[in-house]
Computed example of a mutant assay.
Amino acid sequence: MAGNPINPARIDFTTLRLFCAVAQTGSITKGAERCHLALSAASRRMADFEAASKACLMERTAQGIRLTPAGHVALQHAMRLFQGFELFSNELSEYSSGSRGHVRLWANMSALVEFLPAALAGFLQRYPETRVEVEEQLTGDIVRAVVEGMADVGIFVAGAPTHGLNVRPYRVDELVVLCSQAHPLAAHDRIGFRHCLAHDFVGLNRGSSLLNTITTAAQEAGFPLRLRVQVRSFDAMCEMIAANLGIGVLPLGTCARKLGPWGLKVVHLDDAWARRQLLIATSANRTLSGSASLLVEHLAKA
C-alpha cells in the first residue's frame, strides 16, 4: 500500500524550477543565481522541498550537490511538469493570439463561390490549428446571425441594415447576363438590363439578395420580371440557362469557368447596380476572438 501522498500545495513551480537548476548545476548557489533568488531563500526552499517529498533528494559533497536515486526520480517528474506547463502556456497563448481557435463564418453565395475558397485556403495554410466553420446563408440571415452571436463574421452585399454591426468593405463583384450561345442576346457584348426583360429568366429561390436586386431593377424599369425557373444554386442556374430555358443574372466570377464547356455567353450590363459592394461584418457589441480578428484582417487584405 502506498504511503501518504505529497501535498501539492507545499510545492510550487518556483521551487521545482530551482530544484532543476540545482540538479543541473550541482550547486545551490548557482541554482539560486539562475533563478534570481537569494541563497538563503533558495536553501530554505530546497529544505522545504525535501521535507514535503518525505525523501532525501540531494547529497552534499565536497564537489557540490549530487542527486540521490529519489532525487533523480523527482527530477524526471519535475521536468515532465515543466514540459506540460510549457505546452499549456503555449496553447493558451495560441488561442489568445488567434493562431488556434474556432471561427464561425456565414457568407452569401456570391462570396462563398467567388472569393472565399482561395482566401480561406491561404488563411488555413498560415494558421492550420484554426478551424473555420463556413455556412452559406441569405443576407438577412447573416446579419441576424452576427448580431445575435450565432456567427462571428459575416459577408454579404451592401444595402442590408447594419445596425449593431461593424462593417468594412470586402470585395466588389460584377453581375452579368448569362445566356446560351443559341439565345438572341448572345449577339451582344453589352446591354442595358431593361432590354433583357423581354425574355424569360432563370433565377435563384425567393429570399436571395440577387433575386431581390433584379426584381427591384425590373420594377424600376417598368417591366415585369418573367421568372420561368427558380433553383437553389448558381450551378443549377447555369445548367438551366445552357438548356436555353431562359437567361440569368449571375456574378461574373461564378460562371466564368463554365462558358466554353457549357456553351454559355456572358453579356455585360451597363447598369450601375451591376457592380455590388460586399461587406465584412462583425458584432459591434462583442469582442472578437483572436482567431476571428486574424481571419477578418486576412480577408480584408486578400
Rank of each mutant, 00 (worst) to 15 (best):
A221N: 08
L204H: 12
T216H: 07
P224Y: 06
F115E: 14
R226S: 04
R131Q: 11
M109A: 09
V143H: 00
C196H: 09
I247W: 01
A198G: 07
N108F: 05
Q230C: 12
V146F: 03
T213F: 04
R206S: 12
E220K: 12
V177M: 12
R168D: 05
T213A: 11
L124S: 11
H199W: 15
D200F: 13
N244H: 06
L175W: 01
L204V: 14
D189Y: 03
E135N: 05
L138Y: 14
N108E: 14
H188Q: 15
L227Q: 00
V147E: 01
P161N: 02
A182S: 07
A145V: 00
V231F: 04
A221T: 04
V146I: 02
M237Y: 07
L112F: 08
N212C: 10
Q137Y: 09
N108S: 08
A243C: 10
I155R: 09
E129N: 13
T162N: 04
Q137P: 00
D173P: 00
S209L: 09
L120A: 05
L204M: 14
E239W: 05
H188G: 03
V143A: 04
F193A: 05
A118Q: 15
P184N: 01
L211G: 03
L185D: 02
H188L: 13
W106Q: 07
Q181S: 01
G203Q: 07
M150K: 10
R126N: 11
V176K: 01
L245P: 00
T162I: 14
L105H: 00
G140C: 05
D152C: 08
I241S: 06
L165R: 03
N205H: 09
T162M: 12
L112G: 15
P224K: 08
L227S: 01
L197S: 02
D173N: 06
R168T: 09
A186T: 03
I142A: 03
N205W: 01
F156W: 12
R226L: 12
R226N: 11
L225H: 00
E136K: 15
V177Y: 00
V177Q: 00
Q230M: 15
L225Y: 00
Y127D: 06
I214F: 02
F223R: 14
L138M: 15
T130G: 06
G207M: 12
R144E: 15
R194L: 06
F156R: 09
D235L: 14
L211H: 09
G149D: 00
G222N: 05
M150L: 08
A145C: 01
A186S: 13
V134P: 00
L225N: 01
E174Q: 14
L175F: 06
H183W: 02
M150H: 07
Q137C: 08
A158Q: 15
Y170F: 15
A182I: 10
G159Y: 08
E114M: 10
L227M: 12
S209R: 08
H188S: 14
L211I: 10
S180A: 05
A107D: 01
V167R: 03
E174D: 10
N108K: 05
V202M: 13
V177N: 00
L178T: 01
T130W: 09
P224L: 11
A158M: 13
